[in-house]
């Protein structure tokens, strides 16, 4: 019944029903308000391993309160989609997870962000190690002005892998993982900037995989790509879910519906609603969420 209502809502906003998300159908639909009701979720996901445990995260940019009491728990091998209108803090939140906000002056953070059980803002936490384990794919494809080969081996070389054979293997493995191998295997030593936008973005994902991360953060990875390239990346993400945990920021509601297991809806720096994707899209509990996903604002 709920499903049908969801489908109806979806039709008015020209949005296909979420297709994938097998995990979502296994767990009972259980939307939960942000920051509250975690006890329920805990028992439910007792056996699932937590990758990120974020508790009452607040971020200030100068005097601007960018993130307000954000609490999320992210499980291993799931895809979590972050949605919300521009400026709602979802990208900012994503960048707190690999401490990319460190680059921006005047940012102050409090609250707890635990990755694999350790506070990443703790005093002696090794940021480069964090970023090795928590990779990032950016909105605009940003390969280095180097060859395809050098782009992928950049990370492994930095982390001490010098053996040519080992590097060759990494390049082949990661390019196959992102389904780019057949397209570029004859031009590994040509400039990466000569590839198409979609190929560049897959190369960036391969570059990220080359350092064997546990988590991949994606900041609107397909917003600069055409529909065909977007589809390829989405198919790719579905496969990546087996080995990695993915947290993706997207403006594309259909995308969130198609690929993610869980969805969090951000508004004005707060999480309005978080739950498994199917439920959020079919029976959102919050009026704002419903308005946003049906396209009435945002």
């Amino acid at each position: 019944m709920n499903m049908n209502m969801g489908a109806a809502a979806v039709q008015t906003s020209t949005m296909p029903r979420p297709t994938g998300a097998p995990a979502a159908s296994q767990t009972p639909a259980m939307p939960r308000q942000a920051g509250a009701a975690f006890t329920e979720a805990k028992t439910e996901a007792a056996d699932a391993e937590l990758v990120f445990d974020i508790n009452k995260l607040n971020l200030h940019y100068g005097s601007f309160h960018g993130l307000k009491d954000v609490s999320i728990r992210i499980e291993r091998n799931k895809i979590m989609a972050l949605i919300g209108p521009s400026g709602c803090g979802k990208s900012t939140f994503l960048r707190t997870l690999n401490r990319m906000n460190d680059l921006i002056p005047y940012v102050s953070i409090d609250g707890l962000v635990c990755f694999d059980g350790k506070d990443i803002y703790g005093r002696n936490y090794d940021v480069t190690d964090l970023r090795k384990k928590v990779g990032m794919v950016f909105q605009k494809p940003n390969p280095f002005p180097k060859t395809v080969f050098d782009n992928i081996t950049y990370g492994p070389k930095i982390h001490g892998k010098k053996n040519r054979k080992q590097l060759d293997e990494i390049v082949e493995r990661t390019l196959k993982e992102v389904a780019l191998w057949d397209e570029v295997k004859d031009r590994l030593h040509k400039p990466a900037l000569g590839l198409s936008g979609g190929q560049q973005q897959r190369l960036c994902i391969a570059r990220c995989l080359a350092v064997e991360p546990e988590v991949i953060l994606m900041d609107e990875p397909t917003s600069a790509l055409d529909p065909v390239a977007t589809l390829k990346i989405e198919e790719l993400m579905d496969g990546l879910r087996e080995k990695y945990t993915i947290i993706i920021v997207t403006h594309n509601m259909q995308q969130a519906g198609r690929i993610s297991n869980e969805t969090a809806f951000f508004l004005h720096g707060e999480i309005v609603e978080i739950g498994d994707t199917e439920t959020i899209f079919s029976t959102p509990t919050n009026k704002k969420t419903e308005e946003y996903i049906t396209g009435r604002f945002g």
Partner: peptide, 11 residues
């Protein structure tokens, strides 16, 4: 972009 890409792989 290049700075971020480099730092993001742990450089």
């Amino acid at each position: 972009d290049y700075r971020e890409a480099s730092l993001a792989v742990g450089a």
